[in-house]
C-alpha cells in the first residue's frame, strides 16, 4: 500500500481557503485506511506563511511552506511544479486537494508530472482486503463507481460536500520551508472579475435558494431569489440556463459542470430538474421545489413540492417568513 500523501491547500493567492478542510479530512481517512502519514503544502506569495498556523492542528506530519512572488495567484503550471517538488521532497506517493476549479486545474498537471493516475471527485475511501477502494460519481452523478488505482498510489481531487470537518489533533505539526524551484512563466494571471458578495459561500452555506430561467432578468432574480436567500440567511444558486441567459453570474451555477452543494435546505425556484442540475444538489438534506409544471422532474427529488408561480409564491414567502 501507499505510505505518504501530501495535501495541497487551496488558496486564492492571499488566503488558504476553508475547502482545504475537506481535503485534510480525506487525508485523515486515507491515513486510517493505509497506516500512512500525510503532509500539508501551503504555497503562495511571500507572506503566505502567516496563514499556516491554523493548519497545524490536523495531525499532518509536516506543514510545508513554499513562497514565491510567482505564486501570487494559483496559476496551474508554476503551482504544479511546486507541488510536484513538494511531493518528491516529502517522499509522498499520493496527493490530494479539494475538487474545486483550483483542484481541477492543478491536480491533473501534478499527476502527469509525478506519473500518477488521478481520481476526480472522490466521495469516499476505505481499505478492503489490503487494497484502497474509492467511490466517485460518473455520468453526472447518475451512477456511483467503486474504483481502485494501480499500486494504491494516485492524485485525488476531493468532493468537499462528501467530507466533514477534520479531527483536531493536540500536537501542532512542525512547519518547514520548501525551496521553490525555477518556475515556468508561459501562463500569466491578468485579472479576476466576480465575487464581492456578502452572502454565505455557495458550497458551504446551510441554506441555498436557487433560481432558473423563469426568473426572467437579473433584477428579478436578485429581488426574488436573492431576497429569499437573505431572509433565510442563505446563499444564492442558479441553473445553467439562468447563467446562459445572463440573469445570474457563472459563479452561482449549480450542477454537473458548476458547483456541487449539499446544504441542509435547497429551495429550487423555477428549476425543472435536469439530470445535469440534480448532479449538483441532490445530496441536499431537504429539497423544496416551486414550479408551475407539475410534471417537472425536480418534483421527483423534492421533499416538498409546490406547484405554483414563483413570481407569486416567493413574494408570499417573503411576506410570511
Amino acid at each position: 500500500m501507499a505510505n505518504k500523501l501530501i495535501v495541497i491547500a487551496e488558496t486564492d493567492g492571499a488566503r488558504v481557503l476553508p475547502s482545504t478542510r475537506a481535503a485534510i479530512r480525506f487525508a485523515q481517512e486515507w491515513s486510517a485506511a493505509t497506516g500512512g502519514a500525510f503532509d500539508l503544502l501551503v504555497a503562495g506569495p511571500p507572506g503566505i506563511a502567516t496563514q499556516a498556523e491554523p493548519w497545524r492542528r490536523w495531525g499532518s506530519q509536516r506543514v510545508w511552506i513554499a513562497e514565491s512572488p510567482h505564486l501570487a495567484h494559483p496559476v496551474a503550471a508554476p503551482l504544479a511544479a511546486v507541488c510536484a517538488h513538494a511531493a518528491r521532497t516529502a517522499d509522498a506517493d499520493s496527493v490530494a486537494a479539494p475538487a474545486s476549479t483550483f483542484g481541477r486545474d492543478l491536480l491533473p498537471r501534478v499527476a502527469a508530472l509525478l506519473d500518477l493516475p488521478m481520481l476526480s471527485d472522490v466521495i469516499a475511501v476505505r481499505a478492503v482486503d489490503g487494497r484502497l477502494e474509492f467511490r466517485r460519481p460518473m455520468y453526472a452523478g447518475s451512477l456511483l463507481a467503486t474504483v481502485r488505482v494501480a499500486g494504491d498510489r494516485g492524485v485525488f481531487s476531493v468532493r468537499t460536500t462528501a467530507f466533514g470537518d477534520p479531527a483536531d489533533v493536540e500536537a501542532a505539526s512542525p512547519v518547514q520551508a520548501l525551496a521553490v524551484p525555477d518556475l515556468p512563466r508561459g501562463a500569466r494571471w491578468v485579472a479576476l472579475e466576480g465575487g464581492g458578495s456578502s452572502r454565505p459561500e455557495l458550497t458551504t452555506a446551510r441554506v441555498v435558494v436557487s433560481g432558473g430561467r423563469p426568473l426572467r432578468d437579473a433584477e428579478t432574480f436578485e429581488r426574488l431569489v436573492g431576497g429569499l436567500a437573505d431572509r433565510l440567511g442563505g446563499a444564492v444558486g442558479a441553473t445553467r440556463a439562468a447563467v446562459d441567459a445572463g440573469i445570474a453570474p457563472n459563479e452561482l451555477q449549480v450542477g454537473q459542470t458548476g458547483k456541487v452543494v449539499a446544504p441542509e435546505l435547497y429551495i429550487a425556484a423555477g428549476i425543472s430538474g435536469s439530470v445535469q442540475h440534480l448532479a449538483g444538489m441532490k445530496d441536499s438534506r431537504v429539497i423544496a421545489a416551486i414550479n408551475t409544471d407539475p410534471d417537472a422532474p425536480i418534483f421527483d427529488v423534492a421533499d416538498y413540492g409546490l406547484v405554483a408561480d414563483l413570481h407569486e409564491a416567493i413574494p408570499e414567502l417573503l411576506r410570511k417568513l
Binding site: D12, V75, S100, T101, F102, D105, G186, A187, R188, W189, V190, A191, L192, E193, G194, G195, T203, P249, N250, E251, K259
Partner: peptide
C-alpha cells in the same frame, strides 16, 4: 470560469 467568477490569463 472559476469558482470565484471569471479569471483572465495570458498564455
Amino acid at each position: 470560469e472559476v469558482d470565484a467568477g471569471r479569471e483572465t490569463l495570458e498564455v
